[in-house]
Amino acid sequence: MTDHVKTNETPTIEAVEICRHFGTDTTRVDVLRTVCLQVEAGEWVAIMGPSGSGKTTLLHALGGLEPVDSGSISISGESLSHSEASRARRRRNDVAFVFQQYNLLGDLTALDNVALPLRMQGLRRRAARGQASSLLDRLGLVDRMHAHPAQLSGGEQQRVAIARALAVEPVVLMADEPTGALDSDSGSLVLDLLRSQHERGQTIVMVTHDHRVASAADRVVTMHDGQLVDEHRMRAVHASDLQHLISLDVGR
């Protein structure tokens, strides 16, 4: 993990006073209340908070999956527009999502799932499949390439989903509880995958309720009741620091 240093460059994501509500009048719920957030290039931000705090909505909004009622969001300096069509374009090229439920398309093989966003960008089938295949290879899934999601374990599916997200080389990777549905071993694999991507410079915004997963990020922000209430920047630590950080006793 990089020791984060504030730079003067444009932040990768800049959200200014975004608000969003659902329902009207008596049923109105303010899900996001004047939230401001900046994510720097290459930074890994974890968003935590109790359920109902708005963290998933925040993630969706930052990635252009949902509109906001007021405020502005920019990715790479270009603000997200109100039109769904324009946001869709950003989702095709700049942003990629990974979901708790993987959300792979059951009709397609793992390979074709990963190739799909490339095909949507206009790549010919062979080229798309080639890139998808090398990506899956890099992720260690080459022998599961031709399987359908139904034949893959949860962990494998999530890794295929990550491959799909990485296929378009997104500016930022949005992960919504990526390990939420996985057992600890698969979860570790997925976390390692995210870690290695982060080491390669990938900007990641992640929602999680798992503190262990969150600890891998550069920065942990906490949401409560629609607002960002807390933030911890992780300083760089080494393995050798551990003994000073905890006091563990094997008995006298």
């Binding site: 891998a216 911890h232 080494h238 905890i246």
Partner: peptide, 22 residues
């Protein structure tokens, strides 16, 4: 609370690294 939280996070972070290396 915040201080303790940070300590725990950092400890977790170091722990993960340790587990990976050893």
């Amino acid at each position: 609370i915040r201080d303790h939280r940070r300590q725990c996070f950092e400890a977790l972070r170091a722990l993960d690294m340790t587990a990976a290396e050893a």
